[in-house]
Simulated scan of single mutants.
Amino acid sequence: MKQNSGSRLSFSEAFNLPLAVDLHTAARAFGVCPATAYKLIRLGQFPCPVLRVGGCYRIPTSLLLRALGIEERPIYAVDLEAGVEYAARSHRSHLPRTEART
């Protein structure tokens, strides 16, 4: 699969998604360009189930996250970001002084 030249979704972005997303957002989550995502759908090989609504593709967020290996969502994405920041601070405080400054 070809890598997407745009930015990938961060964890906090992924946890703040609506109940269903468009194909471009799902492609970003998987790190592929939208053209590759359309091709995978045509081949029946997209990594998660895709719904066709009118002329648009929609991907249920719960299925998208499950395909990415994310089984549980935090209550709030802000909690996740705070946890990451706390872990980073905690890790730096346990490093020897010479490593903590770099």
Rank of each mutant, 00 (worst) to 15 (best):
Y57G: 03
P47Y: 06
P74Y: 08
P60R: 04
V78F: 14
P60S: 00
L51N: 05
L63G: 06
L40D: 06
G54H: 04
R42S: 10
G69I: 06
L51V: 01
I75C: 12
A67V: 07
F46G: 04
R73W: 04
V78L: 15
Q45P: 03
R42E: 10
Y57T: 01
L68C: 08
C48S: 03
G69D: 11
D79N: 14
V84P: 12
R66T: 10
G44F: 02
C48W: 03
P49L: 02
E71F: 13
E72Y: 11
D79P: 14
F46D: 01
I75M: 11
L65N: 09
Y38C: 09
V50H: 03
P34H: 10
P47T: 05
I41T: 02
P74S: 13
L43H: 08
E71T: 15
T61W: 01
Y57Q: 02
G55I: 08
E81L: 15
L51C: 07
E81F: 13
R66W: 07
P74H: 08
P47E: 07
D79H: 13
Q45S: 06
E72M: 12
R73C: 08
P60V: 01
L43N: 03
C56L: 10
A35G: 14
A67Y: 05
L43S: 08
L64N: 02
L51E: 06
L63T: 03
L51F: 00
T61C: 02
I41K: 07
A77R: 13
T61P: 01
Y38W: 07
V84Y: 14
P49Q: 01
L51I: 05
R58L: 02
R73S: 12
L68H: 08
P74V: 11
V84N: 12
T36F: 10
T61A: 01
R73L: 10
I41H: 02
L80F: 15
Q45D: 05
E71Y: 13
R66G: 07
A35N: 12
P47K: 05
